[in-house]
C-alpha cells in the first residue's frame, strides 16, 4: 500500500507539475527506477523506458487517485491513459471535478 500523499492542486497545469515532481522526487527515491538522463517532462514515456517500474506503478496510481479524489477504474489502466504525464493529466484530471478542500 502506498503511503505517499498527493498535494492539493487546483488545475490541470498544477496537477501535471505535481505529478512530475512526485515522479522525480519520492518515486525515484523510493524505487530507484532507471531514471533517464534528461528530466521527466509531460511527454516522457514513463513505462517503455523504465522510468516507472512494477513497484512504482502502485504509488503512481495512488497519487492519481488521491490527487483527483476518484478511483482509477481497471479499464483505464492502459497506455492510452498512462503512457506519459500528459496522457495521465488528460485522462484523469478534470478542472470542473477537482476535489474540494
Amino acid at each position: 500500500m502506498s503511503n505517499f500523499l498527493a498535494p492539493r492542486v487546483e488545475n490541470r497545469e498544477a496537477f501535471a507539475a505535481a505529478l512530475i515532481a512526485f515522479i522525480e522526487g519520492p518515486l525515484f527515491a523510493r524505487h530507484g527506477g532507471s531514471r533517464p538522463s534528461a528530466t521527466v517532462d509531460v511527454s516522457t514515456p514513463l513505462f517503455e523506458t523504465g522510468v516507472i517500474d512494477s513497484l512504482g506503478i502502485i504509488d503512481l496510481l495512488a497519487f492519481v487517485e488521491t490527487a483527483t479524489g476518484r478511483p482509477v477504474p481497471m479499464r483505464k489502466v492502459d497506455m492510452r491513459y498512462f503512457g506519459t504525464v500528459d496522457r495521465i493529466t488528460r485522462a484523469f484530471w478534470n478542472d470542473k471535478e477537482a476535489p474540494t478542500p
Binding site: 512494477s54 506503478i57 496510481l61 492502459d78 497506455m79
Partner: peptide, 13 residues
C-alpha cells in the same frame, strides 16, 4: 507486493 507486476502486464498489454 506483485500487484504492481500485474498492473504492468495489463498496462503494457
Amino acid at each position: 507486493a506483485a500487484a504492481g507486476k500485474a498492473l504492468m502486464q495489463r498496462l503494457l498489454k
